[in-house]
């Protein structure tokens, strides 16, 4: 029998994968992909809680998260294209212009 804990563990595993990708990769495009993984992991958690507590708010919240993810991609990819036109690189280290 699949319980809520199964889904939450799966959500945690996916979130950890996204976290590893977010901290390990230096390609800015890969950072965007990792962000998508994080948002999707959270969505699974919301949908699971929504089902096992019989409350619809979780699904509504996941719906809004999808909207946020879509607009994040639009703005982020536009900025990334601009950055690539300016510097010719999508390496994360090329962003360190303040030498902090």
């Amino acid at each position: 029998m699949i319980t809520l804990t199964h889904y939450l563990i799966l959500s945690g595993i996916l979130f950890s994968i996204g976290l590893v990708g977010l901290m390990r990769r230096k390609n800015l495009l890969m950072l965007f992909f990792s962000t998508e993984i994080l948002l999707n992991a959270v969505n699974i958690g919301f949908a699971a809680v929504s089902k096992f507590y019989g409350d619809l708010s979780g699904q509504i919240f996941a719906f809004f998260i999808i909207a946020v993810a879509a607009s994040e991609v639009a703005v982020g990819l536009g900025l990334l294209v601009l950055w690539y036109k300016k510097t010719g690189s999508i390496n994360l280290d090329s962003l360190a212009m303040m030498k902090g």
Binding site: Y7, L29, F32, F33, E36, N40, N43, A47, A48, S50, K51, Q59, A62, F63, I66, A69, A70, V73, A74, L77
Partner: peptide, 23 residues
């Protein structure tokens, strides 16, 4: 599986339709 059919359809349309095409 979680009986959230609307969310599943939106996931397919938005993510693999719109976001992936944008990428």
């Amino acid at each position: 599986l979680l009986e959230a059919e609307f969310l599943g359809v939106v996931q397919i349309i938005v993510y693999s339709g719109a976001v992936m095409a944008l990428y």
